[in-house]
Nucleic acid binder design. Sequence first.
DNA 1: GCAAAATTTTGAATCGATCCAACATTCGTG
DNA 2: CACGAATGTTGGATCGATTCAAAATTTTGC
Lengths: 352, 352
Amino acid sequence: MQRKSIKLADVAKAAGVSHGTASNVFSRPEVVRPEVRERVLAEAQKLGYAGPDPRGRLLRAGKVNAIGVATAEPLSYFFNDPFARVVMSGITQACDATGAGISLVSAANNEQLAWNIQSAVVDGFIVFCLEGGSRLVELTRERRLPFVALDFGYDDETINAIGVDDFSGAGMAARHLAELGHRRFGVLALPFDDSGSGPASVERALTAAYAGTRDRLRGYLDVLAGFGVDTSAVPIYETDNDEVTTRAGLEYLFAFPNPPTAVLAMSDKVALIAIDWFRERGIAVPDTVSIVGFDGVPEGGISKPPLTTIAQPMEEMGRRAVQTILEFDGTIRRETMELRLIGRASTAPPLH
Amino acid sequence: MQRKSIKLADVAKAAGVSHGTASNVFSRPEVVRPEVRERVLAEAQKLGYAGPDPRGRLLRAGKVNAIGVATAEPLSYFFNDPFARVVMSGITQACDATGAGISLVSAANNEQLAWNIQSAVVDGFIVFCLEGGSRLVELTRERRLPFVALDFGYDDETINAIGVDDFSGAGMAARHLAELGHRRFGVLALPFDDSGSGPASVERALTAAYAGTRDRLRGYLDVLAGFGVDTSAVPIYETDNDEVTTRAGLEYLFAFPNPPTAVLAMSDKVALIAIDWFRERGIAVPDTVSIVGFDGVPEGGISKPPLTTIAQPMEEMGRRAVQTILEFDGTIRRETMELRLIGRASTAPPLH
DNA sequence: GCAAAATTTTGAATCGATCCAACATTCGTG
DNA sequence: CACGAATGTTGGATCGATTCAAAATTTTGC
């Protein structure tokens, strides 16, 4: 805009006062004599001074009053993914209440991500730990700012985390179906590690790198075993939590001679894709097949049929995350939030 | 964390090099001898140095590589409002492509807002101009950074803006209904100014402070007049674009002895609330009443019945906004985006 | 072995503010 | 009028880095 940007010192000089006084005019106006204040303000106006540059202020001030929200997904994730959106909703509530700002941090490639995390001007980070979360956590840790991992997919006890009890949550889903009378199951899993999708053996699944996925699977199988199901025969398909791999997973599960009467999906997203797939093939839900999701996203309430699911208190998690950052005092805080079975119309007793 | 935070100078001293060299180790590693680099890095590690503080860097560097997105609504608006979400989706796409970050700026009260805008560390602003937009624009203008107003609700030719042709868009909606044969209309308007909701006269509406609302109304009436409708008799209700006032508006419109067969809603949000209201009362849409919305939010595609609407290219607007900021060269850019009628099942010829 | 060229390192200047101890001025009061 | 208190103003120090011209060192060429 200007040839060279005006700074506070220029204004001070023009008004014939010290820069200290000029600074006071803007940051503590009551301390300077009205007459002088007017003069400085007038001069600032004349020079086209844009007001104290936050960069300068920031350097001096301790805190920024903004928190960073980081993910390894592209930025659009925050606005398009249902889970993220609900969590963000909770985060914004807490930020609105305390007047804190939000910086969205993310990047397409890893290098960008590192840079973006290193250069975010924030008081702390909330990290969405999805696949590849551990790298993100390392990057964030290096900033040595308070940060909290959301949805901890692994068990590093040295960082703040807010997560859920995947094991017992999955158990609730399995028990719900088993109590309805189901005995033939299929599992649509989330990624076990970075290696891609496909059918998975129980052994592989139980030694998965991603603790969240692993615990959910353990939760399923543990309960099913209690109901006398031969868990080693339960087909498991590892999806990428996307449409293509979920559909591939369904083809796999329903190619068996004795297909499942109940599907355990590790995310609502996968479950909703499955419901579409069933409809397309004329497979009745819940009459022919029951399905339970995981997460509790709003979309699950309006699908046809509405989805039975294990709901995470997403908004609450977002709010807690902000609190954890703002109130951080050096002691690690790890919270496990309650999961809740929401029984809707996608589950029913098996026909036979 | 630390008693006192480690800075680059400390590391430099510890490693026995100048701070200039220490700086190079981090920002241009290739320029310093490997041996020295290792030593500095090792020392940094030992001291627990968190890497160059972005605040310091920022002061020196010209640009921040982040853009601010501002609104007078609370932060949750960005994640809960359908219109905002789709626009944000476009904004994030453009930011992802260029590697820019996003800071969300907003505040519950006006004072906070001013402060937040003044202290946002960004290269420019995208301003969501809703009600109260002009104050927001003034605040932003004072920062003397590039900024672009989205959905320009008023006609200040001195600022960048990306908007739509409200007049002709509204005309499309009205023509669609008129051509179906409708002659009795009701209008659910957005706010005309800050003064609250209620029935509005045509005169008041046509002199409204908010140009967007005014132009949409003019667009409706202009076309309707062309079809021989007595526009002075068309009931208009000013809503706050929320549930309560929309329902009040519907009570008003449908209390007339000869109620409308077609409703012109100035936003999809209002239109979708209306559809709910109709269903609750057993009023068939589109058989008894047709309704056209405005905006083209995704929800309109899955309502029952799906909503006929005037769609704004929201994602594209978001993308353009980012470009406008990043490519700003001092020349004002005002873009008018194309609107498009999406005909869906909420409109049909009147029964009689 | 030495001058010239290439590579590294140095340290002062700068970015734009805020803070604060010291100094200056004004005011009230006996 | 003098003195202490109250109120305003000053300018140096600081926040934490980057930059760049100049100085120091190493390498190259002959």
